[in-house]
């Protein structure tokens, strides 16, 4: 089993993806964190309850602004993590390496286990690059806005840890998707499309249905935001103005929800792979 994980990691580290993906992670992290910082720390102003315009830091506190800036790119991050997860299996079908892989590891349950473990490691490594990029991009704009870079170091560390965890969980969800849809292009298209388009539209749609109005907070993207616990210590009604939902899940329930998605997807991947003919 350990040797299968080692082989899977070797697979990842012997293609261009090994450096291009962390690079993309770091660059996009820096870019979107800087963009978020631009609005929250440099040029952004919000209408305060008495009607005058005030800066976000004055309204939400410096802690919250730093958190929001550093995690400003998280959507990019988990999309890329999803892609990493998808590629693990669909890449094998695309390049027809699945035959060689299964000849070396014919017990398919073990292979799936090894792939899941390697995705955790690979996405975690990439998430570190992503976090480093986010810190760089965020810190630049925070310092331009004359805000403290690390107002609450312990709290920020926890936020970064949660961000890494969220990315890892998206990687695992991607794995299931890659098994479900062995055609790599279609799988990527569906994965990114559902996250960026279908989920928000569906979320909007069901706000008009009373019984379902609450459901959207369980959707992967919404749950991911909750899992980051960005709005700790902020009045819920204020949080709404920043895109948080009023009755969001608590961070640990949200984490469990994501874990649930990942588990269901991985289990589907497991069952499908065990039965599939490789012809």
């Amino acid at each position: 089993m350990i040797s299968l994980v080692r082989a899977e990691l070797r697979k990842y580290f012997t293609t261009r993806l090994a450096w291009s993906m962390p690079l993309a992670m770091a660059v996009l992290g820096a870019l979107f964190a800087a963009l978020q910082g631009l609005f929250l720390a440099v040029i952004g102003e919000f209408p305060s309850p008495d009607g005058t315009m005030i800066e976000p830091a004055a309204m939400f506190g410096e802690d919250a602004v730093a958190r929001l800036v550093y995690t400003g790119a998280v959507q990019m991050g988990y999309l890329l993590a999803l892609v990493l997860g998808i590629l693990s299996m669909s890449g094998e079908f695309r390049h027809k390496t699945i035959t060689a892989t299964l000849l070396a590891a014919p017990r398919r349950g073990q292979l799936i286990g090894a792939k899941l473990a390697s995705i955790v490691v690979v996405v975690a490594v990439n998430a570190l690059a992503f976090t480093a990029g986010s810190i760089l991009g965020g810190a630049i704009t925070l310092s331009i806005g004359d805000l403290p870079l690390f107002p609450d170091p312990g709290g920020l560390l926890a936020t970064f840890a949660r961000m890494v965890l969220v990315l890892v969980l998206w990687g695992l969800m991607g794995f299931g998707l890659g098994v479900l849809i062995p055609n790599q292009v279609v799988a990527l298209f569906v994965g990114v499309g559902v996250t960026l388009l279908v989920e928000p539209l569906l979320g909007l749609g069901i706000t008009f249905v009373d019984q379902l109005a609450d459901a959207s907070k369980y959707f992967p993207s919404q749950a991911s935001m909750s899992a980051l616990d960005l709005f700790a210590g902020i009045d819920p009604s204020l949080a709404q103005s920043l895109g948080g939902s009023e009755d969001a899940l608590s961070w640990w329930v949200a984490t469990l929800v994501l874990l649930g998605y990942a588990a269901v997807m991985a289990a589907l991947g497991w069952i499908l792979t065990a039965r599939r003919d490789i012809a």
Binding site: A7, T14, T15, H95, K96, T97, T99, L103, A104
Partner: peptide, 26 residues
């Protein structure tokens, strides 16, 4: 075994392809 239509990742060297397989069996 060497089967028809066994593929190689175009971006991975042949040597690394073998190293991946070798790793599974130590």
């Amino acid at each position: 075994s060497a089967l028809e239509a066994t593929g190689f990742h175009p971006g991975r060297s042949g040597r690394n392809h073998l190293r991946v397989l070798a790793a599974t069996h130590g």
